[in-house]
């Protein structure tokens, strides 16, 4: 699903959702290509999201009411901007803090100084 230059699939799996929600929280509204480019830039190319992973997630989150879309016509094409809905803000906050907490926990296990976060 991802094209990962640095990390194995198993590790990156499950991080796409918090990454996308965090980006939308910071930027307000974004279109798909913009999201992939932002992730690539922020992670210095270490994580690259493919359209095959991104769009199913965006459509699912939209169906769940986490995201809303705004379409803008650009000649023959339509640019669809995704943004957090009102209830989506809370979902994003919860997931981001859960992920941060998880990373902290993981650190305490995997640290060279085993057991000290």
């Amino acid at each position: 699903m991802y094209i990962c230059l640095m990390y194995s699939k198993e590790i990156v799996k499950g991080t796409l959702k918090p990454i996308v929600l965090k980006l939308l929280k910071e930027h307000g509204r974004m279109y798909g290509y913009e999201i992939t480019q932002n992730v690539k830039a922020l992670t210095e190319g270490k994580i690259q999201i493919t359209e095959g992973a991104l769009y199913p997630l965006l459509h699912k989150l939209q169906a769940e009411g986490v995201l809303q879309t705004e379409s803008e016509k650009m000649g023959k094409r339509v640019r669809k901007y995704y943004k957090l809905s009102q209830s989506g803000e809370a979902v994003a906050d919860d997931l981001i803090s859960e992920m941060l907490d998880f990373m902290q926990t993981l650190k305490s296990v995997l640290n060279p100084d085993y057991g000290q976060a």
Binding site: Y33, T36, E51, Y55, L58, K76, R77, K80
Partner: peptide, 30 residues
Amino acid sequence: LEDQQVEELHDQLLRWGIAYDPLRDDLLDH
């Protein structure tokens, strides 16, 4: 891209069987 070039890419997506409109809009822009 010119409108005609966009249409060319749109037709390519249709040939590939991307029939679900909301997704095709996303993929075309991408």
